[in-house]
Computed example of a mutant assay.
Amino acid sequence: MRSSEFSRQLEGYGLLTAQILYHMPDHPGLLQTFLWQTLDKAPVFPELKRFLTFWERDIDGKLHSVRICHRDLIGPSDWRLLDAEYPIH
């Protein structure tokens, strides 16, 4: 059973964005860009590894490079001190 996205975030998963450059199958001299986002766990990135394994096995375009950006969605909360409080009734 797959847990909800919120539960995965509590387990340490964050938003991963991968920019994948690959050679076009019919024109290997040309590069195409593919953007992919998912929840993944840094620093091992099991979901990204699974996706790239699938790509190399089932997709004709040979990989050129992969750039990633990862951001935890749940972390220590930011807080600030209030200057004033205004009660309402």
Rank of each mutant, 00 (worst) to 15 (best):
L81C: 12
W36H: 00
F54Y: 14
Y13M: 04
P46E: 04
L31I: 05
S4K: 10
L39G: 03
D40L: 03
R57L: 09
V44M: 13
K41H: 06
L81W: 15
L10M: 12
D72M: 12
D60Q: 07
A42S: 13
E11D: 13
Q19A: 07
D78N: 14
D58K: 12
L15N: 04
T33E: 13
E5L: 13
T17C: 10
W79T: 11
L48I: 00
Q19N: 08
L10P: 06
P76E: 14
E5I: 11
R8E: 11
E47P: 02
R71P: 03
Q32H: 11
P43I: 04
L30W: 09
E5W: 09
E11I: 11
G29D: 08
L63D: 00
D60F: 07
Q32N: 13
L31H: 10
I88E: 15
I74L: 15
G12C: 04
G12Y: 06
Q37F: 02
D60G: 10
Q37H: 09
A84P: 09
G61E: 00
T53A: 10
G29N: 11
K62V: 08
D40M: 00
W79E: 15
L10Q: 13
L16G: 01
D40G: 04
R67M: 06
D83I: 01
I88A: 15
T33D: 12
R57A: 11
Q19S: 12
F54A: 06
R50M: 07
S77G: 14
L39T: 04
P28F: 05
L63N: 03
H27M: 11
E47M: 04
S65A: 10
L21I: 07
M24W: 12
I68K: 03
T33G: 05
